[in-house]
Design a protein around this nucleic acid. Structure first.
Lengths: 342, 342
DNA sequence: CTGAAAGCGCTAACAA
DNA sequence: TTGTTAGCGCTTTCAG
């Protein structure tokens, strides 16, 4: 007993108006008498009318879909980004198409451009590290595809970028450790392809410098934003002489690796070793001991990026070219005064 | 210098054929001479032709999009489901529309039906707990919308469901604890709205029964699949007399809560208390000590569900009405022989 | 095996 | 403020 779905013609007939007027009302265009508006709305409701998105897309040459590209194994990060983007999409009546990818796959550029050329998406949001992948950026500019980058690195073209002030947060975190009396602080750098890694290192060094400690003599290891890399780097750091009294890992996954390395070496945290991470992933709260870390407003980053993209797509005020949001320190039990025994 | 995008007419003209023939080739329909086929393909490639999906959707009255509904705070789970679904979508040339939702939101049913009526999606994949939400199921059947449920509970209609054999896995896990000599095993039930909670409890009880232990006398607490609920339940279990020598939490988040409760009570795990979880979330490996748990083939569940849905949408062999995949135990350091002191 | 014509349901000029 | 007329680019009958 499934009746034919009502179309705009049915609504127009029912309301005794032309389809154009119906279209106007439905799209919130101006120049419609309130009374006419109400008649249309009543007819639409009466017929349980639902506009057909495919027809709208074809006729308007817009898809009202934005694509989200990411190449990131961290589920918590990705979910937060999706969440933020979806919140804005719902509000602005857009859809979100998720497109996980591999930055190094040779097909990446084609995939992205193709999404637009088949008019599957109107624009793209890029997260790190794809957001910093030059060949892709160039291709998008070349093909005149709208996009917004979630990254702190600047890039060619006038595409906006949204980011978090990693450098500042890393500086504050290091300040915190120094304030606790630590002078020999080990640092684990994040994945070399992520711009954030670089900024966090800069913040670390800036703080040391500001406190009269030599950044170049600080023990530093190169990690990959993974538990295992954090574990390995911690082992190397803890084998140094003198042994660092604190380790600042560039993200929570690596910090968890540090915790495990300390555990295996029977070093009490924080009594003998202070540890801090970055990102405040959900598990940080549940680590033993709970991890001091920095919380980033990831959802908000995604919201800002999405809003910015949609504004551009709709030809509105393009807004800033660069948005920088601030993180905040979350102090938990994994850090304490240097040399403190419980 | 962006030239107009090539359309099917351009390809037809270039190949000296009708658009219908081009359409045939592009859609892999039969009854085309190989030579003609090649001519079309060559022309398409030469013009860098990309079919316009909106036009295709409008004309064929299909969107080639499937919607994924979920109401689950566990990022790892959701990402795995998305991953599996996307893998199949790519292979079958479908798109995936993610739709996180709230099971109890009054608008849920309308949202879901509307997705189909606006021809945004051709069908839906439902995960727990939405998959078990009767009002939604009824509405989908009523509206004649194709869907596949990821759930172990059976439901009205002939919609297929895909699940993991939770009961069996929980039974095996309990067998494992009993084999280690535990007879006083505490159990923490999962969220009451998730069918999996019930099945895992059944498996636990079945194993006790099979080994001559009384299921009704076993210490059991009701949790919510969250760290905090696991923590609270563990506190209650550990306050009992006699104190359980092992705790089986229905998921890893709750198991992490158990670990923390044990830590606070200065109970060594596994020496004084064996702990096991369920799901093998990434963090299980990094817990202190690493958690014994059960790994579910979540990606594969999503793959099967997606394949099944697309088959139905394409009117192919509908396949089974019910798919049950098997989990496997992952034994790590959080469980050991009862009464063992390191 | 191939083609011509008729829409799919909507938006976009341009009139009225 | 409202209506008319063309398409948007494809798939689908139905003929050849």
């Amino acid at each position: 007993m499934t009746r034919r779905r009502a179309t705009i013609d049915d609504v127009a007939a029912q309301a005794g108006l032309s389809i154009k007027t119906v279209s106007r009302v439905l799209n919130g265009e101006p120049n419609v008498r309130p009374q006419t508006r109400d008649r249309v709305l009543a007819a639409a409701k009466g017929l349980a009318y639902q506009p057909n998105v495919s027809a709208r897309r074809l006729a308007s040459k817009r898809s009202f879909v934005i694509g989200l590209l990411y190449d990131n194994p961290d589920s918590d990060y990705v979910m937060a980004i999706q969440d933020g983007a979806l919140a804005v999409c719902r509000r602005l009546d857009y859809h979100l198409l998720i497109h996980p990818c591999r930055t190094l796959a040779p097909s990446l550029v084609d995939e992205a451009v193709s999404l637009h050329h088949r008019s599957t998406v109107d624009g793209l949001i890029l997260t790190q590290p794809v957001a910093d992948f030059e060949p892709l950026i160039r291709a998008l500019i070349e093909a005149d595809i709208a996009f917004v980058r979630i990254s702190q690195r600047d890039s060619a073209g006038d595409s906006p970028c949204v980011s978090v002030d990693d450098e500042r947060a890393a500086r504050l975190m290091t300040d915190h450790l120094i304030l606790l009396g630590h002078t020999n602080i080990g640092f684990i750098i994040g994945h070399p392809d992520h711009g954030s890694s670089h900024d966090r290192l800069l913040g670390f060094r800036a703080s040391l410098q500001a406190h009269g400690l030599s950044p170049d003599r600080a023990p530093v290891e190169q990690g990959l934003y993974t538990f295992d890399s954090g574990f390995a780097c911690a082992q190397r750091l803890l084998a140094r002489d003198p042994r660092p009294t604190a380790i600042f890992a560039s993200d929570d996954h690596m910090a968890m690796g540090v915790l495990t390395a300390a555990y295996e070496k029977k070093l009490a945290v924080p009594a003998e070793l202070s540890v801090c991470g970055f990102d405040d992933t959900p598990m940080a709260r549940y680590a033993c001991p709970p991890l001091t870390t920095a919380r980033q407003p990831i959802r908000q980053v995604a919201r800002v990026a999405t809003e910015c993209l949609v504004n551009r797509l709709q030809g509105k005020d393009p807004g800033e070219r660069r948005y920088v949001l601030e993180s905040k320190l979350i102090l938990r039990e994994s850090t304490s005064r240097c040399g403190t025994r419980r």
